[in-house]
């Protein structure tokens, strides 16, 4: 699909946007490849550079998916530990950031599975019997109210939006977070999530339609 002037404008905006505070592409740069090479060559400081460069984005993505600051910190940490131990398996086929996001997603999914398994063995709370919720399905809701990270900046519409995102199906939540917060392209989301681009498109469509239905015009820019 060709890029129109409007498309270029969007990419330009997103290129300097939230997922890309340094003006570099959201999922990787030559600096990353250089740092990876130096890591593999034994320069221990290089991995510190990688962490420094990516920690906000990885933490942000995980936090948006889990809604829990402490958990997000743990999972982000695990993501980097995993990345470090698997660094030799990264050959630059995908953008480094996409590779990192994929690891982070695996961590989040594992965490969801673990919590789900724990909940299966736990006493059932009558308060949690709200049909159709994640809790019903043994999944921790991704939002537990304003978190410490952006509590001071939380306004009503932000809170409402976060709640709505948290209520999404995890598959939809992933693509929304990666697209809307992390500014990944469809192709990058496909790589990170391991699904075809067409699936990314349909999930984004359904996720947005769900949000539009739930929010019903309550969120204004």
């Amino acid at each position: 699909m060709g890029n129109s002037p409007r498309t270029d404008r969007i990419q330009e905006v997103s290129g300097a946007g939230r997922g890309d505070p340094d003006g570099q592409r959201a999922t990787g740069s030559a600096e990353d490849m250089d740092a990876v090479r130096r890591c593999l060559a034994g320069e221990s400081d290089a991995f510190g550079e990688i962490v420094a460069r990516w920690q906000d984005r990885i933490y942000s993505a995980v936090y948006r998916m889990t809604g829990d600051a402490d958990n997000a910190k743990d999972l982000a940490q695990e993501t980097f530990i995993r990345a470090w131990s698997s660094l030799r398996s990264y050959h630059g086929g995908a953008a480094f950031g996409t590779w990192l996001y994929a690891i982070a997603l695996n961590q989040v999914r594992s965490d969801v599975r673990r919590r789900r398994a724990q909940k299966r063995g736990a006493p059932i709370s009558l308060d949690a019997q709200r049909a159709g919720t994640d809790e019903d399905r043994g999944i921790d809701p991704a939002d537990r109210g304003p978190g410490p990270v952006d509590a001071s900046a939380t306004t009503e519409h932000v809170y409402i939006l976060r709640k709505a995102v948290a209520a999404l199906d995890p598959d939809y939540r992933e693509v929304i977070v990666l697209r809307e917060f992390e500014d990944l392209s469809y192709e990058e989301i496909a790589e990170a999530t391991g699904v075809p681009v067409g699936t990314v498109r349909s999930r984004l469509f359904r996720a947005r339609e769900e949000l539009r239905r739930v929010l019903d015009g309550r969120v204004q820019p």
Binding site: V158, F181, L211
Partner: peptide, 17 residues
């Protein structure tokens, strides 16, 4: 609504590690 939604996402406060 979809454009408003996009704008609302863009207006969300940044999360830092």
């Amino acid at each position: 609504q979809l454009r408003d939604l996009r704008a609302a996402f863009r207006a969300m406060p940044r999360v830092t590690a």
